[in-house]
């Protein structure tokens, strides 16, 4: 466990010195810059819209940061050969992979925590509203980013950074449209093969729409605790599957 934590901490240190963190502050600045353009903050509907757009922007930034952080970890270390000096020590490849993933999660969590604070301050300043339910929305975004980063980490054990980044974008869109297009094919597919293919993909990939609770956060009282627990378990399951597959590929990989 000590090895996993040491590697994770090193990932966080590395991420914090990158310019990625500036993106977070840029995010805040962008939101603050556009908010005066909104018509009226007295109306509850506008505050809800502000919450909605904040969660959506957090989701966008979260996904981008998750991909950037995850795709560069292992290929970057192999390219710079810093991995040699870690894996020649009594560090197992599973520990290395888990440490990398944990470091990515902690970095993402830190970034999203700062984003949440920015949104809360924005809502307080512009709509005189303290809305802790926003944390629920950001947490759902974090869970989504956790799955995407696990997917990217898995792919980087076998392929290059550009291929992984491209695959991650495809994965993101596929996992968001699956409830629509794939489900429709699954139910209404005319041939057996279409149904089998649609069904295979439908159940093999996560439904990222489950993590989109911006409507409940913005226009209602948020999602129920049961729902939050369910999507947390869902995220853990898929992330674990991706990390295990990644380890299977990485375990005997020649470096």
């Amino acid at each position: 466990m000590r090895n996993v934590l040491s590697i994770a901490l090193n990932v966080v240190k590395d991420a914090s010195r990158r310019k990625i963190f500036y993106v977070v502050f840029l995010f805040g600045l962008v939101v603050l810059a556009v908010s005066p353009l909104l018509p009226s903050f007295e109306l509850g509907a506008t505050a809800a819209f502000l919450k909605d757009i904040s969660i959506s922007l957090t989701s966008l930034f979260g996904v981008v940061l998750a991909v950037i952080l995850a795709v560069t970890q292992i290929p970057g270390e192999i390219e710079k050969r810093t991995i040699y000096n870690i894996l020649s020590k009594p560090v197992g490849r599973a520990q290395y992979l888990l440490g990398k993933y944990l470091g990515i999660l902690v970095s993402l969590f830190g970034i999203m925590f700062v984003m949440s604070i920015e949104i809360l301050i924005l809502l307080g300043a512009k709509a005189s509203m303290f809305s802790p339910v926003i944390l629920q929305g950001v947490f759902a975004v974090f869970l989504e980013a956790a799955i995407i980063s696990a997917f990217c980490l898995m792919l980087t054990t076998v392929t290059s950074i550009p291929v992984t980044a491209f695959a991650a974008i495809l994965f993101y869109f596929l996992c968001h449209i699956k409830t629509g297009f794939l489900h429709q094919k699954l139910v209404t597919g005319t041939t057996g093969i279409v149904k089998v293919l649609a069904g295979g993909v439908y159940y093999a990939i996560p439904n990222l729409e489950n993590f989109n609770i911006s409507q409940q956060v913005a226009y209602g009282g948020g999602a129920s605790a049961t729902y939050m627990l369910r999507i947390t378990g869902y995220a853990i399951l898929f992330a674990a599957v991706f990390i295990v597959i990644g380890y299977a590929a990485f375990r005997r990989k020649d470096l």
Binding site: R81, N85, K89
Partner: peptide, 10 residues
């Protein structure tokens, strides 16, 4: 103990 050919460190 291991010293790589080129100094590859963080």
């Amino acid at each position: 103990g291991f010293l790589p050919e080129q100094p590859y460190f963080y």
